[in-house]
């Protein structure tokens, strides 16, 4: 009983994920600042932002539904927190079962759908535009993302993340067999997180704030927290699926390696947002269906042939 509560609230769920989420946001912002030759925020900035948002007045425009507007950010936060519970951290996972990869992928899609709903139920014109765009973007990146993430599962002949990790300990890291899949998964993750350069649904210069234009105060704080934790869970997932090395007996070394891999992927995400300009939605759809989907299919074909 206490064990379960500890897993749920402290580690690897709840508190730990919130902490890592805030740390991720700071790291990302600081790295971007360094790439752009700025000073960047101090380490406590994300926490300070969150506290500030929660202490602010919570406004909802006339005609908005208070219940739905409150539920949507909480729903996406819960979904990503639950997803984080099933992703192994440095090989440690409290609950593992055959098929947890599919559950995580499902839970990771919940914030996108909630984001779409948040836009479409709002009466603001920018929110509706942003909501529609988020769904369009979802159809562009989700297919290559899912195919890329199923590559390791096919290669390991297991739909549990722990099984995939174990397969990597014997076969070798999957990034060596499917580097293409790794890149595609990263691109998909950027699209899922609505990060620059695929921040089309929330592009400031085009649709102001996207779906979140009319949100304020604590609700906006929950949205930001959910996005950060979603990023962390996504990065943990990619580390587990593609970057599992040999089984390390020493837990400290394992944690260190895991942390370094985390840093590398955050660095890749930050440099991607520093390098690329935002695409137009038609350009993204073209990129998704003309380039990413064929590439991911080629990757999965290669994996299947390798398995045979």
């Amino acid at each position: 009983m206490f064990e379960a509560l500890f897993y749920l609230l402290i580690f690897p769920g709840g508190f730990f994920l919130v902490l890592v989420g805030l740390g991720f946001e700071w790291l990302d912002r600081k790295l971007l600042a360094l790439f752009q030759r700025r000073v960047g925020p101090p380490w406590y900035q994300p926490l300070a932002d969150l506290i500030k948002l929660f202490s602010k007045e919570d406004l909802l425009p006339k005609g908005g539904n208070e219940l739905v507007a409150t539920l949507l950010p909480l729903l996406s936060l819960c979904a990503v927190l639950v997803a984080g519970l099933y992703v192994p951290i440095a090989g440690f996972t409290p609950y593992s079962f055959e098929g947890d990869l599919i559950v995580i992928l499902f839970l990771m899609s919940v914030p996108t759908l909630a984001y779409y709903l948040a836009g479409i139920i709002s009466i603001g014109i920018y929110s509706i535009l942003g909501g529609g765009r988020s769904l369009l973007q979802y159809f562009s990146y989700e297919v290559p993302f899912l195919i890329a993430l199923s590559g390791p599962a096919v290669l390991a002949r297991s739909w549990s993340i722990e099984g995939i990790l174990t397969a990597q300990f014997t076969l070798g890291s999957f990034v060596l067999f499917q580097p293409l899949g790794f890149i595609l998964a990263l691109v998909g993750l950027i699209g899922k997180l609505k990060r620059d350069p695929l921040d089309i649904p929330s592009a400031k210069s085009e649709v102001v704030g996207g779906s979140l234009t009319e949100f304020s105060g604590g609700k906006l704080g929950f949205w930001h927290l959910a996005m950060n934790i979603q990023a962390v869970v996504g990065i943990f997932l990619i580390i587990n699926l593609f970057l599992g090395w040999t089984k390390l007996a020493n837990p400290f070394v394992a944690i260190l390696v895991f942390f370094l891999e985390f840093l590398v992927i955050v660095g890749m995400l930050s440099s991607a947002s520093a390098i690329f300009a935002r695409l137009r939605i038609d350009q993204l759809a073209g990129l998704g269906w003309r380039i990413l989907v064929p590439l991911s299919l080629a990757q999965i074909l290669f994996v299947i042939l390798m398995g045979v």
Partner: peptide
């Protein structure tokens, strides 16, 4: 550059 999302 800012308007097309190229903040760098």
């Amino acid at each position: 550059a800012k308007h097309v999302g190229l903040d760098t």
